[in-house]
């Protein structure tokens, strides 16, 4: 199973990025070999539709689960249609959150926000 997390830095102990669509990188952890690979988020600099594009990248990588502090409506629609499950991250690093997810301590994210359109803090 592949687990994706938006991260601020390319390392397993990175903090989780508060933005899904505009995160600089994604960490993708594979439960089979317990390895983490990092990807640049091409959507980060998109003028619009960043959430849709980021969700597309996740779907294209055959990710099964996304761990994210929040998620926009459009991104959630892409992820839901692509059957990627979304869980809400807890405070802590990417590594910590993967552990929490595996231990079944994260809950599914269900409150999707409307577009921020450049107004994010």
């Amino acid at each position: 199973m592949k687990i994706a997390i938006p991260v601020d830095e390319k390392n397993p102990d990175s903090s989780v990025c508060p933005s899904f669509g505009r995160t600089p990188y994604f960490a993708v952890y594979d439960t089979d070999d317990e390895k983490t690979v990092f990807f640049d988020n091409e959507a980060a600099s998109a003028q619009g539709g960043a959430g849709i594009k980021a969700a597309q990248l996740i779907a294209d990588m055959d990710v099964d689960v996304l761990l994210s502090p929040r998620c926009g409506e459009n991104a959630a629609e892409v992820l839901n249609k692509a059957e990627v499950r979304i869980y809400k991250t807890a405070a802590g690093t990417a590594r910590f959150n993967i552990g929490e997810f595996k231990a079944g301590r994260l809950t599914m994210l269900s409150d999707y926000h409307a577009g921020l359109h450049g107004h994010a803090e």
Partner: peptide, 23 residues
């Protein structure tokens, strides 16, 4: 079509384009 759209209004899900009208 999906790769072309610079507004990211199209997603590619289950081998078909999916339109986000408002984008």
């Amino acid at each position: 079509c999906v790769d072309f759209c610079r507004f990211n209004a199209l997603a590619f899900i289950k081998k078909r384009p999916f339109l986000f009208e408002e984008v």
